[in-house]
Design a protein around this nucleic acid. Structure first.
Length: 380
DNA sequence: TAGGCCATCTGGTCCT
DNA sequence: AGGACCAGATGGCCTA
């Protein structure tokens, strides 16, 4: 059977054919053995595409067409792996049938090899945080996420080895935070103020995944509530974070930031969180932290260098890499622009709330640790 | 509909 | 010598 593609004037553009000799008949690589297809139609499609060639020579035609199309291009890239010329010459004695059968076997092996590569990628995806079976990560995204995750774990271990969890710089800002705490605790009437104080229910520090998903948002309850007396709001799953529309905060993060200039380095504004789609949010942050930051926000090495310890400080257990990236960016904003600590902290909470809500992650323990970093205190 | 992603085929190159 | 590896080419599918 031959599959041909034809142009509008019915001239064959490409034809595929697969020839199998008796030695390979009956052997199907994994993808064709009926396993792993999402539906019969999928299998039919693939089987059709790889149908058997019995007596057609389109296999050769395809090769010829490929060669001619390659030659038509100007100076195709030649591989230069090794200067040693060890290429095998085609033995004219070998029959065309034998050559075809070898090619077919080679194709089968190559297909199997690529399947095993894909399986390995799937396994890698499964061990990444928040990357389940139905994850839509592409191959390159999977690799980047894995790279980030390894970086996170490595840095976390290094920090633990060094006992480097104290942040003296941030301690200097504690009074401002305490003022915010005091204000919010006495008058938690506005959302912004409630955001300024992280409510941490320690009982969920070590909660399992199901418990995480079922917990209410930090924003859905009053900060004065006692964890023990708290009643689980039934509307917890309907929580939708609202963008902090505080004028000063908006101005700081989305308008004035365009004008910031440090030496020869211009800082681009942070993306508008309220207008950012979750897909863009995810996609933008799936990259290496330094590359992402360098490409999107900072050109100077000095600032990039200052980001690294900030990111390192934000490496938290169970925290998705993309969230820690974002936290790192905000931490750097605090350090670089001396942005109001209270406002920045509330922004942290908003970012985490938004992300955790979309990802069905309970954010309290994350927020607690972020807050402890910002305040220079360590949660017990 | 353009572009991204993917599976597959293919021949050259490298390795055992 | 044969298999593994690699990269180019191609077409299908999906999504913004």
């Amino acid at each position: 059977m031959v599959i041909e593609s034809r142009s509008s004037n019915n001239i064959p553009i490409m034809s595929y054919g697969i020839l199998r000799d008796e030695s390979t008949s009956g052997y199907f690589p994994p993808i064709f053995n009926g396993n792993g297809f999402s539906s019969d139609s999928d299998q039919e499609k693939i089987s059709f595409r790889n149908a058997w060639l019995t007596e057609d020579v389109s296999f050769v035609n395809a090769s010829i067409k490929r060669e001619s199309s390659r030659d038509a291009q100007e100076t195709p890239k030649k591989r230069q792996r090794c200067s040693k010329a060890r290429g095998k010459r085609r033995d004219p004695e070998i029959s065309q049938t034998l050559r075809k059968s070898r090619r077919t076997m080679a194709n089968d092996r190559e297909r199997t090899r690529m399947h095993s590569l894909n399986d390995a990628l799937e396994n890698l995806k499964r061990v990444l945080p928040n990357c389940g079976e139905d994850s839509k990560l592409t191959k390159i995204e999977t690799l980047r996420m894995a790279s980030n995750y390894i970086f996170v774990l490595t840095e976390t271990l290094n920090m633990m080895d060094r006992g480097d969890f104290d942040h003296t710089d941030e301690n200097k800002k504690a009074p401002e935070m305490n003022a915010s705490l005091s204000l919010s605790a006495t008058n938690p009437s506005t959302r912004s103020e409630r955001l300024g104080v992280p409510y941490v229910d320690q009982s969920y520090e070590c909660c399992d995944e199901n418990a995480v998903k079922s917990q209410p948002s930090i924003l859905s309850r009053s900060v004065t509530e006692s964890p023990k007396l708290r009643v689980m709001p039934q509307s917890a799953t309907k929580f939708e974070p609202m963008s902090p529309t505080d004028a000063l905060e908006t101005r700081l993060f989305h308008e004035l930031s365009q004008c910031y200039k440090t030496g020869n380095t211009y800082i681009k504004p942070l993306p508008s969180l309220s207008n950012m789609s979750i897909s863009a949010f995810n996609r933008d942050l799936i990259t290496t932290p330094t590359d992402y930051f360098r490409d999107n926000y900072v050109c100077s090495e000095a600032l990039t260098d200052s980001l690294l310890p900030a990111l390192t400080s934000a490496k938290l257990r169970m925290l998705p890499v993309k969230v820690s990236c974002y936290i790192g960016i905000y931490i750097l904003y605090v350090k670089t622009f001396k942005i109001s600590f209270t406002l920045c902290a509330s922004k942290f909470v908003y970012v985490l709330e938004l992300f955790c809500h979309r990802q069905h992650i309970y954010p309290n323990h994350v927020i607690a640790k972020v807050w402890s970093f910002l305040s220079g205190k360590r949660t017990s």
